[in-house]
Design a protein around this nucleic acid. Structure first.
Lengths: 134, 134
DNA sequence: CCTACTGTCATAGTAACATATGACAGTAGG
DNA sequence: CCTACTGTCATATGTTACTATGACAGTAGG
């Protein structure tokens, strides 16, 4: 698992890490129960501070993506966020709406947009299958 | 046009305004050429600072959503963002990916997700039609 | 011209983010 | 037990993002 930090991205570093771990989990690159890189080595590899990685992991734990045990490490949960369904639905709708608004504003028509969504779904499904082969 | 600010949303106030104006533009609630609320009255109505509104409008102008004339006001452009197509595509893909990852992570399957996307497209198309009637 | 509106700029204070460092606590293996 | 690994906490520091305040500049109409 290789992570990548962009300092001039405008987005907070710790949130970049959160997103990438979530993506790795969603695409199957990281599997349930699997251990994440430990804080100190990962911080060194990414050239960022221990506390920044710790903050990202802490955020991921509060989102229910990982579980962390003092002295042992952090591990992917077997899936299923801790959010109530209604809350999750609202979050998902908000995400979808943002993409839909962006498409509208860029004059992307319905068919093109649905095609793009299909493409991206395929893209992640492909990564998921690949990661389960070897 | 009524805007709504949530101070405990975690998201910067000026970006909340940007999103809402973009949504209003995308859904047709605001039409090309139409004047936006002027900075000071809007700031007062929303109980936020004039400069916060000004910053939102400035951001919207740099995104090509509105045009603003000193002493006259700010107006919706007749559409078409100033971004090059490739840049726009990357932005749109990033938006879509974020929604797709969220869906994956919430164990929402492909069909349900596509159904949701269709729903939200309908939702905005409906608002667009409604706003063009009267 | 003057007043009332428009947006704009300069400045300053507060909060968030990231880093750096040191100390502490639990776990595993020699 | 001791050492080396894990995560956690507290504190300090610098930078940047955000918000707030007041002064400035262009426009329109009486």
């Amino acid at each position: 698992m290789v992570f990548q930090i962009d300092f001039k991205a405008g987005k907070p570093v710790y949130l970049q890490l959160v997103d990438q771990v979530r993506r790795a989990a969603a695409s199957g690159v990281l599997r349930p129960g699997e251990a994440l890189p430990s804080i100190r080595p990962l911080a060194e590899a990414l050239r960022i501070n221990r506390n920044t990685v710790a903050k990202a992991y802490s955020e991921l734990e509060s989102q229910g993506v990982i579980e962390t045990v003092l002295g042992k490490g952090s591990f992917l949960t077997n899936g299923g966020s801790p959010f109530a369904k209604s809350v999750r639905d609202k979050l998902l709708i908000a995400e979808v709406d943002q993409a839909v608004v962006a498409a509208h504003h860029m004059n992307v028509d319905r068919e093109s947009f649905l095609a793009l969504v299909g493409e991206r779904l395929d893209h992640f499904e492909r990564k998921l299958v690949e990661s389960q082969k070897p």
